[in-house]
Amino acid sequence: MIEVKALSFSYGSGGPKILKSLSCDLEQGHCIAVLGNNGAGKSTLLKCISRISHPQEGEVLADGGNIYAMPRRELAKKMAYVPQQSLRSHTMVFDAVLLGRKPYIRWDAAAGDREIVTEIMEKLELLPYAARYLNELSGGELQKVVLARALAQQPGYLLLDEPTSSLDPRNQHEMLRIVKEICDTQKIGVVIVIHDLNLAARYCDRFLFLKDSELYSYGGMETMTPETIRDVYGMETEVIEHRGYKLIVPL
């Protein structure tokens, strides 16, 4: 479990607070959507949880250990972070995924690392791309490679910052379907910053709403109500059910 305790963050001393004394427990084995308006602090929360950003106050515990006191290599074995935008370089897809083994590599990648990478790439249907270069891939393919690299870290928690923002609708569903499947089968904790409420409702089972840098609500599908959405986003919606899925329809 990731325990977030009274987390406060601002850029520079005296700057406006991006997160205000935020506390929550993020359980393993769940797919958790982090929701809220632009500037609510969603991405900052994810970066603080993964030690990319350092909060001024509060702490984050992963399986009981303070992540800011943990050796970076150990933390990288517990948590993997997928950024909003990935850099394209002249690197082969297989090598890009192999990089996910970095926390385990001392001098050079071993045969075991290669096997793990091959297995993950096979699962994500990326093996035919092994010898292609990142700067030749489409947005959807690149995002899959970045996800594969994160999975190669064999993390207990997968943190994704708007993984679908640059994808077409087909690739958005494909991406989240894979993530959901991994969450269900490997029982790892997935935390996704996402804007699309319908995608969140379809693929996630826990919803963390942020409003004005503070926690508004956190819970299961029962929290996805027109009232919550009105308070958080300032828009009127209707939540309907269609073929077993909840749909959020703007009015």
Binding site: R51, R72, Y81, Q85, L99, K102
Partner: peptide, 9 residues
């Protein structure tokens, strides 16, 4: 691969 990815690794 980018500073954030590197930190995460």
């Amino acid at each position: 691969s980018g500073a954030d990815t590197a930190k995460s690794l």
